[in-house]
Design a protein around this nucleic acid. Structure first.
Lengths: 350, 350
DNA sequence: CGAATTGACTTGACCGGTATAGTAACGGTG
DNA sequence: CACCGTTACTATACCGGTCAAGTCAATTCG
């Protein structure tokens, strides 16, 4: 027995295929009585409703939007900040009925999700600027929204004020009298260890935070030692911390790209008998739940990740709406604020 | 200027549409020279590659698989157990190049993701048995895998041994001399508070754990007081705990559906000056990271969520493969073990 | 009472690809 | 030199829907 299609049902009921289609998609186009007959015939035949792929082709819409995530999706679920973000997106998307498709920016054996997966629009979340996946999305002329990405003209974007936040964090250490400062950044140039050129970061967020830190430090005449996480390493935070703590002229304050890193630094410091914040001040970034939870509670830069997610999803649905009815309203570039939260992991330099 | 399709390129280069299609999808079917010309023509015209929807229709495959989640996707990202599970799925799926689409079981204004989103297969994760979304997936004849779901014949399933785990947990309390036992279950019949019929649960996991607890308790002649979380409530765990702790004959041991609930119970107990485990023993379920982290460290039932995720994704790709080449290999029903982990939240009954 | 409207379907084209069977040219073989 | 297997394309028929523009009878209206 072949597949059941609109035609199968049409033949069975003795109407045209179009009428059956209407029975499912535009109930007001036929009599209630006939619709009832069609629906029950469909039911008997075990029809599951119009084929989504066929419908997508004909209608030009799929009912799903994508989120493009750097490298492994795995990480997206491991990181508390990312899950909060995704959760907020899901929440904002729920009333629209759109499903959420997770796309990996890295392609697996000639399958490039950004190019090959059907969708109505996409969110680009903190991808490296060099990623080709983004180019595919653009070529497809999909409505897209950049999040934590360097804003491009004509593309709506959601960012947080990373630079100001980082600047405030660094200034905080400066104000506490720290002169020897270390920085642990996310990955900048592919390896681990000490970074030669702090401005080489391909990731927008990494770069902005770096600029912010340097703003305040340079203004105070401080030249920090910058190390980066080795992304291929499980104990990346720990190793990066060791590099700094092993320096002949050990820093008294460390600025971290994230709370997770900061946590690792604090653990590493405590493990070698250093007091935090007595011997070492540590500042994180994000204000993830971890920051409040850990001991000492972490001084960090707060960003409202949930708000970012909501804004991103809203911007995307707006962009999709815009592309549907050809409206040319100007796109918005949102910049959400950051705020320094001082807790117990920072103190005056010894 | 209209949309660029295979035909546009074909006309431009002066070949048939099929040849252009081959240039993209089956490079071995044409000369290298011609393919080069086609590709560069496509490039000039700003062609983004074969339209995914059209290709999906023609090929009958979309490159994405779904995960059907109970109610709000939001929760899926909030719950550490769920994110671990999803992360493992993503990891297992990565090498296949399949994208992961998150589907809400609840339908929003006549858009039912399970029915309307294009996909090659789906995972059904811990949905209520009554959910109609599952029926849609089945009707579509999509390859599916049940996870934490009552196994149905002909459908591969991944489960953990909830009942044995719960039994071990309850037996543990019995062995410690507890006679007054409370149970805090996940939602059973839609409300909050004390549950009349513990067997009324529509969710398979909820039901199995309940059966397990009762196995051991009834064998010891103990009739527990069962309360359930009110899902609509933010402080659900706390409230449920209060109900038990307010009982005239306060329980000395409480069995919880999850570690998160157990955490809430411990907090509630400590808040009213009860010692844990001195005055009250608490057992969780899942062995999420929280269990190890909290103080006192939680006695709980361990399940390997990551393994569950991997198994689920593997089973799904297997099912998809099976449906492609019409193989009729028998489907597998996997049951993963659980293990009681005794930590510091349980002690002999006072 | 004839014309304009409405309701209920139908017709034919189109969405943008892919599968499969062909065909023509080319070089090698017995 | 007829025969055969390749290589490189093309022709035709779907895939399973939806859209826009009919058709035709049953109202409604001036």
């Amino acid at each position: 027995m072949g597949r059941v299609t609109l035609q199968t049902i049409a033949d069975r009921v003795g109407v045209s295929r179009m009428t059956v289609s209407n029975a499912f998609s535009r109930p007001d186009q036929l009599s209630i009585e006939l619709r009832g007959r069609i629906l029950s015939a469909a039911d008997e035949l075990g029809y599951a409703g119009p084929d989504p792929s066929a419908r997508a082709l004909a209608r030009g819409t799929t009912g799903a939007v994508g989120v493009l995530l750097t490298d492994s999706l795995r990480d997206a679920f491991t990181d508390e900040v990312a899950t909060t973000f995704l959760g907020a997106i899901a929440e904002e998307l729920a009333p629209t009925g759109l499903a959420l498709t997770l796309l990996s920016a890295s392609d697996q054996h000639n399958m490039i999700p950004a190019r090959d997966v059907p969708m109505d629009g996409a969110l680009v979340y903190s991808c490296n600027t060099e990623s080709t996946a983004v180019d595919w999305l653009i070529r497809r002329r999909l409505p897209i929204v950049f999040v934590d990405q360097v804003p491009a003209s004509g593309i709506p974007s959601i960012n947080i004020d990373d630079r100001s936040g980082a600047r405030a964090a660094a200034q905080h250490l400066v104000d506490l009298g720290h002169r020897k400062v270390g920085i642990i950044s996310a990955n900048i140039d592919g390896g681990g260890g000490i970074v030669a050129d702090p401005n080489a970061a391909t990731n927008h967020v990494t770069r902005q935070r770096m600029l912010g830190w340097l703003d305040a430090l340079h203004a105070a005449g401080i030249e920090p030692t910058v190390v980066q996480e080795d992304p291929s390493n499980v104990s990346a935070e720990h190793d990066a911390a060791q590099v700094l703590l092993d320096l002949p002229d050990r820093p008294t304050g460390i600025l971290c790209f994230s709370d997770v890193i900061a946590y690792g630094v604090v653990q590493a410091a405590l493990a070698r008998g250093l007091a935090v914040p007595g011997d070492l001040s540590v500042v994180g970034f994000d204000d993830s739940p971890l920051a409040k939870r850990m001991r000492p509670a972490l001084t960090t830069v707060r960003q409202d990740v949930a708000a970012k997610g909501h804004a991103a999803a809203a911007a995307l649905t707006a962009a999709i709406g815009r592309s549907r009815n050809g409206s040319t309203k100007r796109v918005r570039n949102v910049l959400l604020p950051t705020e320094l939260i001082v807790r117990d992991s920072t103190a005056r330099a010894a």
